[in-house]
Write a protein that binds this DNA or RNA. Structure first.
Lengths: 358, 358
DNA sequence: TCACCCTACCGAATCGATTCGATCCTTGTC
DNA sequence: GACAAGGATCGAATCGATTCGGTAGGGTGA
């Protein structure tokens, strides 16, 4: 319709005042006489002007009211992951206090907008891939607040963390107390180009993905000789294939499988059932996260409940604080053990050396 | 550290070139000699300059590479709703082609950033509350592309819609063919200040929430005398309370309950079980959406599968088109019937007049 | 009546980058 | 050797709003 949007200068001209005066009418930063105010508003209405252009305002003000959230490789995967969505939910709540919106960004090589090119006042990273490091340095030099959840982004970047190692050790001890000795850990992706499959526990310290490494360490603290199988992603299907691979592997069948996420556990349980075995009588299964996953019912998963929403909220509050110039401390959140009925005592019928397959 | 971020002017000065030349080095819009390029890049490195400020660039260019997504009252609820997350997922994919990010905005009274103040090039609305209308008018005047999913935002705003009415009629007919005559519809929120509870089917046409109204119309097309119970939200717990209320209500117990979402259906099924009844022998239950919900297994919900991801992708493509100046047509997506085992023929044992409750 | 103060408003500078027409210099050709 | 062509670089204007120092004018108190 209009060739050009009306600007505040147009409004000011129409109202017969200076642009600065018109600006003040909208921002309310200074007193304006009622007469002038109504004249400006009338002019604005007439020209179809409706508040300042956010782009221009953000250039001048130096802030845009946007907090960037960097999510793993693909948003797809993140949205599918219940823990992430709950966390996002908390984060939205945390930043909402400042009236900020959330800008979803993906951390992929393929040149999706690079971090420093995103019009955000602050960033929250979920995990922290190494290819972000360069961008982070830039942001830090610019003085842009950044906090990282579940990852180490380097010196000076506040972290929101979970007691992954301790929590995994808690649930492992629960399993140990039930008498289990032969356990397999199904780990989240280990990164570093290593794909799906059996993983050498000796290499644990080389895992770059903090969550995976820490939980694995916790499990190994309790079961030094546990075997480890790395999944390709936190998906039910990945848990299912891991479960099949574990149950059909030669050698002694484990009496318990510790999954690093509830979603993986759900897949594993299905694999156990498909192999003609029972949970928990033949195989005990534990999860991690404490989210509801389809495919577990009517069983209740024995798991560690992590405060996902709390985590998001904490991150939101942390960036808010940083925007106010306050340096927030690192935050460590703790998980709570939730007993279910997917774990039970070792059955007497388990004969060492027996192997079961389809 | 630095009191002030380096600007392109600083870099240009350091390199001994004009700002315009330095700009071109970064944007690559014009040819630059290798010597100059490397001089500029060296200067940039030295000063810690890392690409143009997105805010300034977006002012000058008139676009920010951001698409705003307006989600219902609370992000919380939206994230919990699997349909929304899947849709968001598709939307992310749709806009990613342009390299745009997604800015999550909430549509709440409480003065979270108003739409026109958000630095986005285009907007996707999910549903369309009446209080958005004013903002929309502003955006349209500004020539900002807007598309709406599942809602009517007025003249000239492309819509991405679902065949809600037909789809609900399809599943209702399925139930009818199984012999059911006494059915209750559990509806999504009806809005307009009317809360949870029995809803007068006469008032259907007054329901402002399109999804709710259309699906309800579809059900009433088949079951003219169905009773309607409005839920407070698409949550398992809401479905559960609705189920309890329905089963304990005086009068004839329904032989089938048609829920307007899978999540509600899951809650209803639990309520049926808790009342000591069986699904589908005593009560048939249907859903809508075709997403996986916890608490249904080992049953498989009879439902209509809607192409949620497709819906999001279509919206993304539509805004992209509008940004290119093309006016996209309205898009109508269709749902597919998926039979499960939560519906079955009316049991002979159901005696008219019998009521069951705890 | 005069000095003073406060309110309301104005002008100009600024935020940082981009773009386009103009200029300068190099190279090629006759 | 002179002129044309073309590539590289520069200057200045522009995007739209905000802010701050300054000023005019009206009101108050002595």
């Amino acid at each position: 319709m209009n060739a050009r949007r009306a600007t505040i200068a147009d409004v000011a001209r129409q109202a017969g005042v200076a642009a600065s005066t018109a600006s003040v009418v909208f921002s309310g930063k200074t007193a304006v006489s009622d007469a002038t105010r109504s004249r400006v508003l009338a002019a604005a209405a007439e020209l179809g002007y409706s508040g300042p252009d956010p782009r221009a305002a953000s250039l001048r003000l130096g802030r845009s009211g946007v907090v960037g959230v960097v999510i793993g490789d693909r948003l797809r995967a993140a949205f599918r992951d219940p823990v992430t969505t709950i966390m996002l939910d908390g984060l939205a709540e945390g930043v909402a206090e400042r009236g900020s919106g959330l800008l979803l960004l993906r951390d992929d090589e393929s040149g999706g907008a690079a971090l420093p090119a995103a019009p955000a006042d602050a960033f929250v990273l979920i995990g922290c891939s190494t290819r972000l490091r360069a961008d982070l340095e830039v942001l830090q030099r610019r003085g842009v607040p950044v906090v990282v959840m579940e990852g180490d982004a380097g010196e000076g970047i506040p972290r929101i963390r979970l007691d992954n190692r301790d929590a995994q050790a808690v649930i492992a001890r629960h399993v140990r107390e039930l008498g289990h000795r032969h356990v397999v850990v199904v780990a989240l992706p280990v990164g570093g180009g290593r794909g799906t499959g059996w993983f050498d526990p000796e290499s644990v310290s080389q895992i770059a993905v903090d969550v995976t490494r820490e939980r694995l360490e916790g499990a190994l603290d309790v079961f030094q000789d546990a075997r480890v199988y790395a999944a390709g992603a936190s998906l039910i299907d990945e848990g299912y294939s891991a479960g099949r691979a574990i149950l059909t592997a030669p050698g002694e069948r484990p009496t318990a499988i510790l999954a690093q996420s509830d979603v993986l556990a759900a897949g594993i349980i299905r694999a156990v059932h498909d192999a003609g075995l029972r949970v928990p009588e033949d195989v005990s299964v534990t999860g991690f996260d404490g989210v509801s996953v389809d495919g577990v019912a009517p069983l209740t998963l024995t798991t560690m409940v992590q405060p996902a929403a709390e985590k998001g909220r904490a991150a939101g509050i942390a960036v808010s604080a940083m925007l106010e110039g306050v340096v927030p401390p690192d935050i460590l959140l703790t998980s709570v053990f939730r007993p279910g009925n997917t774990t039970g005592p070792v059955s007497a019928s388990v004969v060492p050396g027996a192997s079961s397959g389809p």
